[in-house]
Write a protein that binds this DNA or RNA. Structure first.
Length: 383
RNA sequence: GUGGGUGUGGCGCAGUUGGCUAGCGCGUCAGAUUGUGGCUCUGAAGGCCGAGGGUUCGAGUCCCUUUACCCACC
């Protein structure tokens, strides 16, 4: 059994599924908590992750390859054993770093040459290298090695890039099948998700989606969004492309996003999401509530006795005031970042649970509308 | 008491041989951040340049007086 994907309920185009993997079950729509280097930044442990309702942890191929090294991690039985996480893990392929570390790279047909952001040494990564690293990491789900072109790049560049990413995808699939069959592989049932690209060019997106759908991959991601285009353009692109991906397979909107971005993604049939917002913003004192985002660095919280969000059951809201957390942040204490990060991840995971519940009892549209009204209204408190 | 040094936004400092709306770092206040370099970026507020007098078209810059603090010596 590699994976069993069962749609449990549908509400409009929103779907909620139950997934069985060799590393445990996943209920979708799900938010994957981002731990790029095998840990959620902000001193969050795997025990914390369980407490705040994390189903899937996400780590990065490129980052773990340059430090501390995937071969070392394989010696410890793969990333899940190494980091003491007994639930599913998804590894990003390193493809996004082709985009985000653009100043340090050179792209060719075989793959990409990087300068390490750690010490500057040359690294080559192509589809085979990415699959080998992800195989060593032994993640539940490996992502295809792709190029994420700037959303607003010119058509000619995007078409060439997408065509190359399609060729890379075929190489990823062949290499992953070979690696899964090896005797000493960490996870012989490792899954591979393909990635749809095409900027905001709907015809390119659709043609690519149809092509990769025929390749019978374990799941399909929409990449290359939330990289500079407007929300409207992102939603329109999803409207166009998701119907061309296999409905009986998991879908994943990479790197998205704000709570409302996620709700809109769900409304368009997406199962998986990930985003650095809850953790990065948490480290910067920006915390999410149903009434919008608060910046705890703001002076107005100096004397605020209330928890971040009334009624929230996260470890931060359970025991601490906004004023104390603001004090910790101002003082540069790690506990401040940790509490904000825990709150934000709890908020995201709880929101996904509420989304699943609403889809399963047919009230998703009501939930969607109420969240828009509430989040956009913001806080109207005086103190 | 004698000699020397220093007083410029909350803190630490720049301010050329006197020249136009007095700068910088940190801090403060506010805003950005979407498959993560605990980073970075953007904007704002805040100063009668210790006090008083003088020279000059013009003084944070020169002169006199005074005051506060620091160092050394007695």
């Amino acid at each position: 059994m590699k994976m069993k994907y069962t749609i449990v309920a549908e509400d409009g185009r929103a779907k909620s599924a139950h997934i069985e993997t060799v590393h445990g079950e996943i209920e979708t729509p799900v938010f994957m908590n981002v731990g790029t280097v095998g840990a959620i930044k902000g001193a969050v442990s795997t025990a914390d992750l369980k407490e705040i309702g994390c189903q899937v942890e996400l780590s990065n191929t490129y980052h773990l390859h340059v430090r501390t090294g995937d071969k070392l991690i394989k010696e410890f039985g793969g990333l899940r054993a190494f980091m003491n996480w007994d639930r599913p893990v998804l590894t990003d392929s390193g493809g996004f770093q082709v985009f985000s570390l653009a100043s340090l790279r050179k792209i060719k047909e075989e793959g990409v040459s990087f300068s390490s952001h750690i010490d500057g040494h040359k690294i080559f990564m192509g589809p085979e290298e990415s699959m080998q690293i992800q195989s060593n990491l032994g993640s539940t789900i490996a992502m295809a090695f792709d190029e994420c072109p700037p959303a607003l790049a010119e058509r000619k560049y995007i078409e060439q890039s997408v065509a190359r990413t399609e060729r890379w995808l075929a190489r990823c699939k062949t290499e992953m099948a070979r690696l899964n069959s090896l005797e000493d592989t960490v996870n012989p049932d490792q899954l591979l998700f393909g990635i749809n690209q095409g900027g905001i060019l709907e015809d390119v997106r659709i043609a690519n989606a149809e092509k990769i759908s025929e390749m019978d991959l374990d799941g399909y991601a929409v990449g290359g969004l939330a990289v500079g285009e407007s929300h409207e353009e992102m939603y329109a692109t999803l409207d166009a492309v998701v119907p061309h991906l296999p409905k009986a397979k998991p879908t994943y909107l990479m790197g998205v996003g704000t709570p409302l971005n996620i709700i809109e993604g769900v409304a368009r049939g997406i199962d998986f999401f990930d985003c650095v917002y809850p953790s990065r913003n948490g480290r910067h004192g920006h915390v999410y509530t149903k009434m919008g985002k608060l910046n705890l660095f703001n002076k107005k919280y100096e004397l605020d006795h209330k928890p971040i969000e009334e009624g929230c059951l996260c470890p931060a809201c359970r025991d601490y005031s906004r004023a104390y957390i603001r004090h910790l942040l101002k003082a540069g204490e790690m506990l401040g970042m940790r509490l904000c990060t825990l709150h934000n991840l709890y908020f995201y995971n709880k929101m996904m649970e509420d989304i699943r519940t609403s889809i399963r009892n047919g009230s998703f549209e009501t939930y969607r509308r109420e969240m828009h009204e509430s989040m956009e209204a913001g806080e109207h408190e005086t103190k």
